[in-house]
Design a protein around this nucleic acid. Structure first.
Lengths: 309, 309
DNA sequence: TGAAGTTCATAAGTATATCTTATCGGTTTG
DNA sequence: CAAACCGATAAGATATACTTATGAACTTCA
C-alpha cells in the first residue's frame, strides 16, 4: 500500500470539482501540488484515474471505481478523527470480577452506574483471580475486582469493603456443632465436613487459610464450580461451607434450607479491591467506579448484618 | 484529519506485536521512527494510545478502540491497492444506447458478450442522443451507440452497420399507395399519413430529412415515446411510419398486422456508431465491443433482408 | 486571425516530514 | 553488579511535499 490519505482526499476533491484548480483550493494547497498528488496516486495504483482534457477533467473507469471507495475510506477516517476529538472512546470499559463476587455485587451495581456518564458502556468478564490479573496486565481488561491485594507490582489497588465469612449449612448440621456455637471459631471445624469451591477460587484458599488447613488435608475433591451450586449442596445437608456475607441474601433466597452462623470475633473476612494497571490513565472513571462498588457493597452488607446477629 | 495511513499501519503493528522494536521491523523502519509515528498519531488524535511500561506495551482504552477501526481502514486500503494492481476495475462498463436501437440490439448482444472477459460487468442506459452525448462527455458513460456521427469533436466514432428504413403500415393502408408501390420513394409520401416519434429521437429527425419535410410541416403532435407503441398504432391502421430494419423482427412479432415495404434504391438508412471519448483509454474493450455490436446487427439484418424483398 | 484567457503540466527552490544512527535512562535478569 | 532489554531522545541525512514561476495546448473573443 503505497498511497496516502491525502492523495485520496485530493482525488475525491478532483472528482467532485472536476477541476484541478478548484480541487486544490478545496484541500488548501496549490494547483501544481494537487497535480503532483494525483500523479503520485496514479503511479501508485498503476492506472490512469482521470482524463485531462482542455475542456474537462473526466474520471476514467478505474477512477470512477476508486472515487467511491476512496470516499468511503476517507469518511471512516474522518469519523475516527472526529470521535477521537470528542473523546468518545467507543471502547467499552472492560471490568473483570471474580465469580464469588460477580453474581451478588453486579446486579445492584448496574442500576447505580447507569446514572454515571463514564460507565455508560461497560463490559463484564467473570474469571478467577489469576486469569483476571493476566488479562488486566495485558490490556484486555481495564479494571478488576478481586479479593486480595495483588502481590505483583504494576497495579493500583483500591480497597472497596470488607466481606466477612459466615458458616453455612443445614439447620440440623449446624445444631450438631454443640457448645461450639457459642464461640464459633474457624479452627475448630472438622475438615471432613468442609465443602469448598474448585481450586483457583480465592474464596476456597482463604477459607483453608483461616482454618489452618492445607488443601491436601481436607476432603475437597468436590468440583463445585459456583457458589450457588455449593450452597445448594450445603443447604441439603451435604456439609458446611464458608459463605461471604455479600452472597447471603441471594443464596438464602435461592436455597431456603440454608442457615448461617456468625463466627465470634475476630471474624474471618476478605477484603475486596478494585485494581487497575498503574500505568493506565484512570482519567476519571476509576474512582467513581470504586465508589459505586463500595457503596453497593455497603448497602448489601447493611441488610445482611441486620439478619444474622 | 491529520493522521496518515502509515501511522495507522505502525499502530496496528505495535498493537499486534506489543513491542516497538518488532513492530518497527514489521513495517520496515527502525524503532525510533516507529516511536515517532506512534507519538505523532497520539498527538493527532489528542489521546494516549498505548501505555509504555518497561514490562510491556499495553493499549489504552482509546487504543483498543482505534486498533479495530484502524485495521478495518487499512484492510480496505490494501484491498483497493490490490484490486488496482490486478487491474480489476470494479467499475462496470457504462454503455448508453438510443431507444430506437436498444430493445432490438441488446437482447441478442448480451449472450454474445457473455463470452468476452472485458464485458463481464456491463451497465446499460437508454436515452436519446443529446443526453447520451452529454453523459458520455462528462464521464457517466464509457461508450454510446447513436445513429449519426457526432458533430462535436472529442469523440472517437466507429461505424457499426447500416440500418435501412422500411415503410410500415397496415396492409390496407399500404395497398392504397397504388402504383407508387413499384418505385417507392420517401419524398412521395403524404405528410399527413406519417406518424413519428417524439422530438429528440433521431429516428424521427432522419425520417423527416429523407422525406424533405420540416417538423412543423407534418402532423406530428403524436407523443409516441417508443417505437413499439408507434408500431402498434400503425399496425392498427393509424398511418404510416419509418421502421428501421433492425426493429422489424421484434415489431412484426409483437404486432402481426404490421406490414412493411422496402423503398426503391437508394434506400434511406441510418448508420449506427459506437462512440467513446477520444481522451479515454480504450484499453481493450472498445474494439471488441464494437465488433460484437456489429456482428449482432449483421445477424439481425440478415434474417430481416430475407423476409422483405 | 491574432491576442487574451483557460487549464493542467513542468521546473526549481524551499520548507517540512521522515528516517537512520548513535545514545540515554530506566528496568529486568543472571 | 554487570549485561541485556526496551523505549525515548538527539542530530544529521534523506525524502517528500509545497510554493512560485513558467510553459504548452487549447478555447474564446475581438
Amino acid at each position: 500500500m503505497n498511497f496516502t490519505l491525502r492523495q485520496l482526499s485530493c482525488f475525491v476533491a478532483l472528482i467532485e470539482t472536476r477541476h484541478f484548480g478548484r480541487a486544490a483550493e478545496k484541500v488548501h494547497i496549490t494547483q501544481p501540488a494537487l497535480s503532483m498528488q494525483i500523479r503520485a496516486l496514479e503511479t501508485a495504483l498503476g492506472q490512469q484515474l482521470v482524463e485531462r482534457g482542455p475542456r474537462a477533467v473526466v474520471p476514467t473507469r478505474a477512477g470512477r471505481a476508486l472515487a467511491v471507495r476512496a470516499a468511503h475510506i476517507l469518511a471512516e477516517a474522518q469519523e475516527l478523527a472526529a470521535d477521537a476529538r470528542h473523546r468518545a472512546p467507543h471502547a467499552a470499559l472492560q471490568l473483570g470480577v471474580i465469580p464469588t463476587v460477580a453474581p451478588y455485587l453486579l446486579p445492584p451495581l448496574l442500576p447505580r452506574l447507569a446514572a454515571q456518564a463514564h460507565a455508560r458502556d461497560l463490559r463484564l468478564r467473570e474469571a478467577r483471580t489469576a486469569t483476571l490479573l493476566g488479562e488486566l496486565a495485558d490490556g484486555q481488561l481495564d479494571a478488576a475486582v478481586i479479593a486480595s491485594a495483588p502481590t505483583e507490582g504494576g497495579f493500583v489497588a483500591k480497597p472497596l469493603f470488607e466481606d466477612r465469612f459466615l458458616l453455612a449449612g443445614s439447620a440440623a448440621r449446624l445444631a450438631h456443632l454443640g457448645q461450639a456455637r457459642d464461640a464459633l471459631r474457624p479452627r475448630g471445624l472438622d475438615p471432613d465436613e468442609l465443602l469448598l469451591l474448585d481450586e483457583g477460587h480465592c474464596l476456597a484458599d482463604q477459607a483453608l487459610e483461616v482454618c489452618g488447613l492445607m488443601r491436601s488435608s481436607a476432603r475437597l475433591d468436590l468440583g463445585a464450580a459456583s457458589l450457588a451450586t455449593l450452597c445448594g449442596l450445603v443447604a441439603g445437608g451435604a456439609g458446611l461451607t464458608f459463605l461471604p456475607e455479600i452472597a447471603l441474601a441471594a443464596e438464602t433466597a435461592a436455597a431456603p434450607g440454608l442457615t448461617c452462623l456468625r463466627f465470634s470475633a475476630p471474624e474471618p473476612s476478605r477484603t475486596l479491591y478494585l485494581l487497575r494497571r498503574a500505568a493506565s490513565a484512570a482519567d476519571d472513571w476509576f474512582d467513581p467506579l470504586a465508589a459505586a462498588l463500595a457503596a453497593t457493597g455497603d448497602v448489601l452488607l447493611a441488610t445482611t448484618r441486620a439478619r444474622i446477629a
